[in-house]
Structure formats: structure tokens, C-alpha cells
Write a protein that binds this DNA or RNA. Sequence first.
DNA 1: CTGAAAGCGCTAACAC
DNA 2: GTGTTAGCGCTTTCAG
Lengths: 341, 341
Amino acid sequence: MTKKYSIKDVAKLSKVSVATVSRVINNNGRFSEETRQRVLDAIAELNYEQNKLAVSLRKNKSNTIGILVPDITNEFYSAVVKKCEQNLFAAGFSSIVCNTERSLSREQNYLKVLSEHMVDGLIIISANDHAEESLSIRVPVVYIDRNPHLKDEFIITSDHYTGAQKATEFLIKRHYSPFIITTKTNSSATVERIKGFKDTLFNYNIIDSAQERVIQLNMTSDQYLLENKELDSFISSIKPQLTERRIGVFAINDYIAFMVARAAIKQGLSIPDELSIIGFDDAPVSLISTPSISTVQQDTGTLAQRACRLITKQLTSTNTKLTKRIELIPVKLILRSRTPK
Amino acid sequence: MTKKYSIKDVAKLSKVSVATVSRVINNNGRFSEETRQRVLDAIAELNYEQNKLAVSLRKNKSNTIGILVPDITNEFYSAVVKKCEQNLFAAGFSSIVCNTERSLSREQNYLKVLSEHMVDGLIIISANDHAEESLSIRVPVVYIDRNPHLKDEFIITSDHYTGAQKATEFLIKRHYSPFIITTKTNSSATVERIKGFKDTLFNYNIIDSAQERVIQLNMTSDQYLLENKELDSFISSIKPQLTERRIGVFAINDYIAFMVARAAIKQGLSIPDELSIIGFDDAPVSLISTPSISTVQQDTGTLAQRACRLITKQLTSTNTKLTKRIELIPVKLILRSRTPK
DNA sequence: CTGAAAGCGCTAACAC
DNA sequence: GTGTTAGCGCTTTCAG
């Protein structure tokens, strides 16, 4: 339990002032090579470590970024967070990760804590849409997957709309009668995907019963559920139609896709002959499910990288005026179970 | 972009000294009710927020806990981290989560960063075994799943040994010839599980070829892999034996269990008639795999809760002398695919 | 090139 | 009850 050394101790040992030590540490010039060496030696000898808290207090910036995420156990989010953290670390920032559990009060609570901790910036993933009202924080914010109803924001988001279009189009072209199954979650991602689905129906003149083709389950899904009664009845309801047409389900995410597959198998439907399923996210479940499930892959690496770049750019470049805007990250349709044996 | 107010501004507005404001904020007594009200009003009016950095600097503690974790995208770890974070938050601590990627250099790097950030304590999950040499940090540390080769440590760990025993015993009693399949990862968890397996063989007098029953794959596994050549040859090698005995595989974790199941199915083995598989962790994959896979469930909630309690106890109670020790958290054998249709 | 000193926002003696 | 003040560890003028 040795006490930590401060800059003073280093100054004393190397026989210079604290100012000089500080200059050496920060490489701010105005010291001789010889002095530098002495200071460095002293630092090494004492095993001195800079107190970032003091630095932050003095400089009025903490080199820390707050990351707000709905649920770290959801693979999509954990992948994004992990990559954000790597990017930020490489750029010299620490991150504080906060799980909001999609709860507004938790989100506000964390926002306060992060503010008190003097974070320099915020990455908010899939924010609660009402949160901006409480966002009295005066630091750069980058949203991932936010609904762009405020003009003055940086938003990085997957191209959910096009992804949904691709998925829906695929189903239609392969002559599956398209349905979308969604949840109660009203994130911008969800909204865009539904819009993409509906617009595609329209483009293909499937306008008869467009609204009936949207099935909303009474749940939010960040977890693996094996059963769902609503899905069971959906499957029952389409079963009689299978004699004259086959059904294509675009599931709002891979968890739901998995549940649809389970419900279908339980009722003896044949995949993909009678029923084809496409999910969203490229979560592991889509790959390991039997049968594996086609999906729209989000590019978590790019999502994270762009968000971090945007944050750090705002923090470092004082002159460059960045125009706030939405950046759309392309998604990719991944087809699976193509070779049923 | 309004500037943040400080305690001075509050003092001025409420016409008291900064000391009094501080007393009110921290509820340290020695102020009149009337003063309190005035101060609180001023705080509300200015929307004042305490600068935790300054508090930490002054008090020489940051109310922040560092969490080191091998990989946040691994469901077992993310579950533990999430629950740790919830516990800590409830106790008034922030957490900084760091992904070590099982790399010693990253671990050391983060340890330094955390130290500079003046964390008050550390929760280290499944540490790299050589890390303690670099652990010059002078704060309470609680390890989750650490190899107890240093006496003076707090360690919270699942009862891997007993878990492995239960799994192995189950296989033996159901007349499966037991094998264990493990990875290169040499964590204490892995070591204990292997020991539990071996000892159980010994207890049941399966001592002929005990060493041959341990298959080590040349990989570490935090991810979903669909194929593995070594596993394919393992399956091939046991296939001829199936006429006279059936095989039981205890997989070192659920990812491996899943891969074993895949390899077996690919080669036409019948599960569980010819081959029975038990995994470890109760990761989602064990549940959603087809067929679902029996597993030894770790109690992430208790793991996290105990670790956090131990950390906060050390930080708050000055008098109570805690004796360092290992705390074993019970695990549970979960049997699945019991009702093959 | 180097040092003295002010001060970031806060708490904790210490006085009154 | 309340105010004054020193100082946590650091950076940054400002002199020289």
C-alpha cells in the first residue's frame, strides 16, 4: 500500500520545478534534453503515474466518453459497444458504458452521472425518443440509430429502410407472400424497417391488404424466447393458405426470426418450401439456428468507427465546422439455408 | 452551451459561503433549516451539478470501479458485467468496463489507465494468470474465476469442480462413455472443470485411459464457429465404437458443446441415443441449439452480487477486517432435450 | 530554458 | 451555524 507519488515528488527528485515536469510529461517543449532525461529518470524511479482526475479538473476535460446502450447482453449492442470502446481507446479516450434497459428514468439518471463525471462526449445508441428533453448536457453527442426529429444532431445509422426493402423484395421475387412481424419497440430502426417493408409492397402493387401484413407482437425482444402464443396463432392462421401460396416473413430482428422459425417448425411447416424467413442484424442466433436464417447484416464495425470518429473530430478540431447530418451505413442481405440437404 | 455553475455561484446566489453549500450538499449538518432551503433553491435555480472530478480529487477517491473482462460479446461475461454494473450503480459507484481480449498487454494497459483514473476498486473477471505481476495497483480487487495461487486475494467463483463432477457423473450413470473436450484457454475455470472430470472418472474406476479421454482443441472460444476439423476427426474416431458403447461428451463450455453437436449431426450420429453432450455456462446457444443442449448453469446474478458486495464492503467498512478467501457459488445441472419427439 | 504562482471545484479543518 | 482558508495534483500564464 505505498502512497502514490505526485508531480511534486518527481520535481524534487529531478531537481526541477513542477512546471518543468509537467512540460516534459506533456511534451510541451521549452526544456533541455538533459532536463528531460533527468525528469524521465525520476518518473521511472518513482514509478510515477499521472493523476488523470487532476488533469481533467485543470484542463476542464476528462478524455472520457459516455456510452449509453439499451442492453449490453444483446449481441448487436455489445458488438457495437465493444468496437466503440476499441476505437475510443486507440484515440486516447476512456469510455463509461451505461445500460439503460430502455428505461427513460435510467437513461436520465445516467445522463446526470455522466455529466457530473465531466464526460467530453456522448455516444447514445438507440436512444429513448423522449430523452432529448432531459439532455441538458453541453457536450458533443453522436447518436446511433436515433430518430432524426431534431435537426441539429449527428446520427449514424444503418440503412434500415433499404435493408427492409431488400429483404421484402427478395421474398416477393421468390414468390412468397410477404408479412412483417414486429414488436412494440418503437425505435427509429424499427420504424424505418417497417416503412421499407410497406413501401416495397406498394412498389410491387401489393396494396390490397398492406396493413394486415404487419403483425405487431406485444413484446420487446432483447432475449431468446422459445415460445410465443401470438406467433403460434399467426402460424395457425397462415397454415390454411399454404395450399395456394407460400408465405414469406420479414422479422424485425433475428430474435423474432428465430421465434417464427420455432413456431413454424412446431406446427410442421416446411422451411423454406412453405415459409421463408428473413431476420435483421446478423445476430449469432440467425447463424446457429437450425435451419439457419437469412438476415440483413448490420455493419457494426463501421457503425462504431464512424460514431467514434465523429465524436473525436468534434473534440479535437476546433476550427473545422462539421455540418450536422445523418450518415447512412449500408447493410447487406445474407442468404442462408440455400443448400438444404 | 451555457457554462457550468460551480459551488461558488450557488454560494453567491444563496448568500452563504461555499463551505455551507458544501455542507448542505453532503448533508454534513451544521446549518439551519432556513439556510438549507435557500441553498437548495439556488441549486435548483442554477441547475447546479456537482463536479465529481473535483470531489474525487479532494477526497482522494473516485467512487468508480474498474471492471476487466475478457470479451464483452461473450454472453456469460456480458451477463456478469451487466449485473455487476447494476449492483455497483445501486451502491453509488460508476463502473469503467474494459475488454482485455485475453491479451496480457491490453490487460496491463487498462490496469494503468484505471489506476490513473483513480478507480477505488477493481473487479477482474477471468484474469490472465500472469497479470498479478503487473498489478501495482493499491486498491481492493475482487477476482471472478481466478486461479487462487496467491493467498491474499478475494476470489468469487462458480463451483466449476462440482459442476464438472455432476455432468460427468450424469453421463456415466446413464452409461455413456465419458470424454471431455476442452480448449487452449487455461483459465482456472477450465482447469477446475477438467479436474472435476478426471476425478470423477477415478471415482468410478474409469482409470484405464483417463488421459485419452481429454481432448484439447487448438483454439480459444468466445464465438460461434460452425465447423472445426479436430472435432470432425474426433467424431470419426468414436464412430466405430458406437456399436458396442455410446459416447458422452462433457464440453468445456456451451460454444464447444454446440460445435460438437454440429459435427456429430453432420456425420449422422444420433443424439442422445449414440452421443450425449453436456456443456457449461448455460449460454443462450445451449438453449436455442437444435437439439437443445444440457448444460451446467452458472449463477451470474449471484456471482456479480457477491463480487460487488465484497468490493463495496472493503471500501466502506473501515473497521471490519475481512478475511480473504474464496467463495464458491453453486452451479446447477440443467438437462435438456429430455423429450425427443 | 526554467521557476513562481494562480487556480480548476471541491471538502475539511479551524476559527468565531 | 457559519465563514475563512488550505490544499488535493495538475497546467499554464507570466517573469526572467
